[in-house]
Design a protein around this nucleic acid. Sequence first.
DNA 1: ACCTTATGACAACACCGTTGACCTGTGAAG
DNA 2: CTTCACAGGTCAACGGTGTTGTCATAAGGT
Lengths: 239, 239
Amino acid sequence: MSERVVPPAARRRRRPTKQGVVLSAELIVATALRLIEEHGSEALSVRRLGRALGADPSSLYRYFRHTDDLMLAVADELIGRSMRSWRPTGDWPADLRDLGLRMHAGALAHPRAAVLSAHRVTGRAQEIQAVETILGVLRRAGFPDPEAVRIYHAFVDQALAFGALDSAGTALPRAAREAEAQVWRDTYGRLPAATHPHIAATSRHLVATMRASSYPAALELFLTAARTRLDHVRADGAG
Amino acid sequence: MSERVVPPAARRRRRPTKQGVVLSAELIVATALRLIEEHGSEALSVRRLGRALGADPSSLYRYFRHTDDLMLAVADELIGRSMRSWRPTGDWPADLRDLGLRMHAGALAHPRAAVLSAHRVTGRAQEIQAVETILGVLRRAGFPDPEAVRIYHAFVDQALAFGALDSAGTALPRAAREAEAQVWRDTYGRLPAATHPHIAATSRHLVATMRASSYPAALELFLTAARTRLDHVRADGAG
DNA sequence: ACCTTATGACAACACCGTTGACCTGTGAAG
DNA sequence: CTTCACAGGTCAACGGTGTTGTCATAAGGT
């Protein structure tokens, strides 16, 4: 075996599979993304991917060392797609909101990749560009450097963490998802006020609210707090 | 097969396994937690768990319908351990801060289990108690019901999401962790100001800040925003 | 036209969760 | 005490998974 994976630059022989498909890392990543989108993230396995490509599963190991490797490539593609069309408006809360929602939506669109890559620092081009962009928004808004970095860190981690959390939810098998909805309806919706007064008093809101992602709300709270911080910084600077 | 799992209350015959172990739901959950802690979350499988217990894997299906069911029980146990010693002080931001830090710390104490269970609704005893407690803090603080539920949702998800994110980081192999630190030092610490002005200007802060969890900072921002909301609610109510 | 070798295919391995059928000892009832 | 229903442990099997050692072959430089 030694080294199964040949770096892309060294690849030359474009030999088609039995079913006539010419493989490439790009085609594999694209097909994986398509599979996830069409049949859910649990539908992604090396064997299924091989079948979808018209190739033997083991052929994929000529392009990726293992499944994790493939998922990272998928994640990288994801970052690119999320940020590609973003343009700053100069209104920093609006810009941050847009960026946060984009990152979150990107994660939700490809749950399995998101869960896997949320906690990793790649140091690759797309990621660096994103860091520079977000820091720029904050510094231009007037946050002093240490505060800008703190806010940046919390902002990015919040987007990634909620993205991963909500992704894990959507990656659940359908039966488990329905079971969760039922728990909210049947368990939390029916607790007696005598033993659980606060749940009973708010059960209507709980059942309605808990099925959706809380990221939009959390993001608004984040922006509110950031504005408050900026006001204090300015007041201190002026005083 | 029909109904394999007998509810705990109806269990009476304590028949030991071939290896002399007397099974119970509690023993199984405790063993699962131990396995996860000792050998990583990927070491948890029905078969391994059976081996660790000294029982046939299929025996576990007398106590849990499927693996998911078992994971929910593990998650509930985790919640219970985090909340067991908490006492309210009446100062709602302080209480929320304490609760948030406890949940986060609980996740970090059991990284692999936290990653697996953060996104699940268990509907079990410990979780219900936690929901009631947190809702109580918010409602007593003066948040009207729909707002209390929204804030509750964001608060819990934030704690769970950051817990899972930071857990995933600490669960990484040592080599990978060091590689990440090096990326911050060597890649982000050395980008030229000409191409990446914002990163270059803040690189000192970036390198220092990015290694620690951003949850405490995010939590403070959350509390700031919640206070602002409460002020607005009161002003509206008074006006 | 030849030869190297990149790359696809195959078969096998060691796992996984889950279930239907079977067996056995417990513990309550008589 | 004995009986005996059945809770609960065991066994074997099914269809899935990621991964790898080996082999075959056609692509492409010479």
